[in-house]
Write a protein that binds this DNA or RNA. Structure first.
Lengths: 340, 340
DNA sequence: TTGAAAGCGCTAACAT
DNA sequence: ATGTTAGCGCTTTCAA
């Protein structure tokens, strides 16, 4: 591997001059610049990034913390994030916490050891007081997940409002017994959604029934389980609000299996607006989250932080309800369209 | 930020001794070890990884190249890969080539600049002669994708066999006009599947009709497009083999929209065995790929390469056909079960 | 406009 | 068992 020294020798110049050429510094004559460029090419020289990192105190790498990558919400987030930061020649280290506090802290250690220039936390397992000390080692921003006590830039989605609108939609369709089911990992996202859901019930004078509340649903299988439990209820719900399209898909599949019609026997609302939401029979009414905007904004804000532009931006992006046949069946849809 | 020097001073010892403690070297007395440990704790000392990388010529980071992360096949691969390598304290940089040759080479440059210790290529855009020179900078292994000319460890899936079995399944159900549709990015994966598909037709004396061959289908939308094209054919196919469950899902959704029954009017085979395959109406017959095993094996093989254990392993893992109602309708399924 | 030299923080060969 | 010292490859003062 050729070093800067080798290039300097071959070009008959000093390391300094070579470095100047590498970094596009002024005060290098055209002739010498050419000599250096030529020597670099001849040797196939490429600067060693560990040496640069050590010297410059920056690695050009950032880390993103998520629970797991096989969740379309997070993979979409990472897709956009990686594309965005790579435009600035940054690399992305993916850190799956798997909902573990210990793993989360282990990944934050990357900041301590200076392996990365900054962290985007798209999930949060620990109490903020555990995370806070890491701020002395480098910038951290909170995205998607959020935390009152956190004194860092935060980009979140208006989960409460999103959940409220979805619930209101069900209420306006005449539903009075609405089940709630979301994931639960001490996440504020889940908490805010629950707030929005309950607020809607309150605003429309409906009763909140804890029997109809499920808090550990986060995949297809758990959706199925919920139906298995619901069918034994004396007074089953007529509608159900869920925290993800996957859960909704599981619910719909199992409900159909036991002979229920959707939405006649049970109206179902999903969350995320994943591609499958449109494909299922019936297509799922769901809440679209602007993941891409969130990722782009996250990259921007973290870069600002890294370059010491002091920002403590707190941003909340709006969600959007997308109405499909899992709440408004074919017939009622027609009716509604006519009535417009 | 405390350095090793600070720790040494505080402990009243040399940098060497501190380094020995950090790296668990022998020949450090218990007393001094304790002194060092104590000083480290007091200063909140953590070794600087850039300095270690520079000195040790290893970064503890590997890169994985994929087209994009929002594809369940690849996100599942990355999920398992990250979990596996993190057990050995390695970090994973995700590189999305977006099917671009230039981007692929840019990411391979990480090897040149020594930002990473090795590369797992789960996709391949360039000709091997473009990639080959990078081997002098560090280990590269090929996973999923493969290439005759490549002189590197390769872990692939037996795509030809998988496609053959899926096609044979359709033939045995009595289909004679079978459409083929796969993605095409000069990928050998696609080529091998096509070979398997055609071999099956040949073995059963069926005609290969180029009119029924689609080669740029890789998402839901392209599946829909294919149906739009097929319905205008004079002699439409009675079955269709696809390269992904997403394409199959698009085909099924659109076919139903135009009033076709699946599998009565068109039998559909997917690929990947994604969770949605089971949820759709009808559930999709598909080919399961052992992604997790592949990822675990990939980590193992790359680590071996990194530690100079010379292996040029070429491995091919088997695929498995999973039969569901998109090829074998409810009734025929019953028949078949009875006939067993 | 160019170069000499110090030093980023660490490890290892060598000496004791 | 412990310390001295050279150097990994780079950038940046400082001096010329």
């Amino acid at each position: 591997m050729a070093t800067i020294e080798d290039v300097a020798k071959l070009a008959g110049l000093s390391r300094t001059t070579v470095s100047r050429v590498i970094n596009n510094h002024p005060y290098v004559s055209q002739t010498k610049r050419q000599q250096v460029l030529h020597a670099m090419k001849e040797l196939g020289y490429v600067p060693n990034s560990s040496a640069r990192s050590l010297r410059n105190q920056r690695t050009g790498i950032i880390a993103v913390l998520i629970p797991r990558v096989t969740n379309l919400f997070f993979s979409k987030f990472i897709e956009t994030l990686e594309i965005t930061i790579s435009k600035s020649d940054y690399q992305l280290i993916v850190c799956q916490t798997q909902y573990s506090k210990e793993k989360e802290l282990t990944y934050l250690d990357l900041l301590k050891t200076r392996q990365i220039d900054g962290v985007i936390m798209a999930s949060l397992e620990n109490d903020w007081k555990e995370v806070h000390p890491y701020l002395q080692y480098g910038p951290i921003i909170l995205v998607n997940e959020y935390e009152e006590k956190a004194d860092v830039p935060t980009i979140s989605l208006n989960q409460k409002r999103g959940a409220y609108e979805a619930t209101e939609h069900l209420i306006k369709l005449g539903h009075k017994r609405i089940a709630y089911c979301c994931g639960q990992h001490k996440s504020n996202v889940a908490k805010e959604r629950e707030k929005g859901f309950k607020q809607a019930l309150i605003d429309y004078q409906l009763i909140i029934d804890e029997e109809l509340t499920y808090r550990k649903a986060d995949d297809i299988e758990s959706g199925r389980e919920i139906i298995k439990s619901i069918i034994h209820l004396q007074k089953p719900p007529t509608a159900i609000f869920t925290g993800s399209d996957e859960v909704a898909a599981g619910i719909i599949a199992e409900a159909k299996r036991v002979g229920w019609s959707i939405p006649e026997n049970l109206a179902v609302v999903g969350f995320d607006n994943q591609p499958i939401a449109e494909l299922l029979q019936p297509p799922i009414t769901t809440v679209h989250q602007p993941v891409q905007e969130m990722a782009e904004k996250a990259a921007l804000v973290l870069f600002n932080k890294i370059h010491n532009k002091v920002s403590t931006e707190i941003l909340s992006l709006p969600l959007k309800l997308i109405i499909r046949a899992s709440t408004v069946g074919e017939e009622s849809e027609v009716k509604e369209m006519v009535s417009r």
